[in-house]
Write a protein that binds this DNA or RNA. Sequence first.
RNA 1: GCCCCCAUGGUGUAGCGGUUAGCACGUCAGCCUUUCACGCUGAUAGGAGGGGUUCGAGUCCCCUUGGGGGUACCA
Length: 443
Amino acid sequence: MRVRFAPSPTGALHIGGARTALYNWLLARGSGGELVLRIEDTDRERSTPENVEQILDALRWLELDWDGEPVLQSERADRHAEAVAQLLDAGRAYRSAAGPDDVRAWHDRHGNRGFRGEEEGTGAVRLRVPDAGETVVRDVIRGTSAFANELQDDLVIARADGSPVYHMAVVVDDLDAGITHVVRGADHYSNTPKQQLILDALGEHPPVYAHLPLLHGPDGRKLSKRHGAASVQALRDEGHLPEAVRNYLALLGWGEAGGDDTFYTTQELQERFALERVSRSPAVFDEQKLRWMNGRYLRELDVATLQSRLEGLLGRPLRPDVVAISQDKISTLSEFWPLSHFFFDGPADDPAAREKVLGTDGAGPALEAARAALDGLEDWSIDGVEAALRGVVEHEGVKAKAVFQPVRVALAGAPVSPGIFETVAVLGRAETLRRLDDALAAV
RNA sequence: GCCCCCAUGGUGUAGCGGUUAGCACGUCAGCCUUUCACGCUGAUAGGAGGGGUUCGAGUCCCCUUGGGGGUACCA
């Protein structure tokens, strides 16, 4: 099995594209086949080196590798031209100056019958589509359906300047690369008969096709940039884990036979993924579920791994103890800093929180008592701190919250932080007392 | 307009002629509890509509409706 992923370099890698890449990768890696990467850049405007690099970057982040060097479609123009010439020589294509207006005029006269032009020896190259018969598309996911040839326009396969059009280019590239299975988005489905027509004119046979259902946004419309995190780049920036994204994406449009499972290791995915079981209907990308799943993966990580991933995202060194006590509280990497930055750069500046929590009558005494208890504490551990602070609560005869919240705000500057005992223990005696004193001075 | 495809709760899916329609996210309630989370327990809600076929239909067929894709000298 030889499959291919052929993104067009429009910038970021779209979620739908990422899923297509994943499925192709699963197919190749799960079967011992090969995955080749081709950049569909016949549209020169979009194919800047930066755009291409972004796509490759996104794939690397997802840990989806490919075999060999990525092929740039634009570099195969000679081969495309050769194939066009072959069709011209064989009389399976012709040059015609007819443009869009002429095609429209034809349809005004002939209804939905496909446009048929005349050999004019100049203009764009059009494929001669037979009037009889039908082109049958066999799709592993969607089954079989027939498209009447009579209804198909003689399509342009090369522009007047000789440059090949997309359909011509893909067909030739897939042929030359020996692609056996074409797995791509369903937006290519209706174009498949055209490509089969070209293949047929070339005297070749079509590969196995599989068209994946499109992804929609929460509003039911095709997923796009305005739906927020619609790209792999955005997911990475939000602090998702590639393994979680892969797991989530795999399940967006595919389900195991009789399976109630939700979590799959990449290994399991490779073993069990089957094209035949991919859904036919479009799916809605659900950020909430991805987030939930990401949290589950995050909590499974050992502290050292989590720390290095966080450092990678934040670009600064962290501390394992801080990472450890924050792990249960976050579901994406980017939630770490807002929660625990105060360990590194001092209490947050949140006047509203200070006012609300430290402005109450009991706050002063509570902080005093907590300070005294911690000052003399011998066992400076999470358990030791807990014993000391609970002692304060008991001694003061107040609710636990009446002591813990002021301490939290004094240390973190915010009403939210990791567990208070953990926070105190990790912050250390000197820093804790200093922050308590600062808060006391302001009360 | 024409061609093609799709249709199980709010979301992703399981089921493949006989089930109390399963699982997961979400939502709601409760528990846990020092905040926020996590976790646990329970609840909520579903086969678009209409015709067939059949003893029996999410499950097979047709129509309607709704949604999507294609229809470029775009990719």
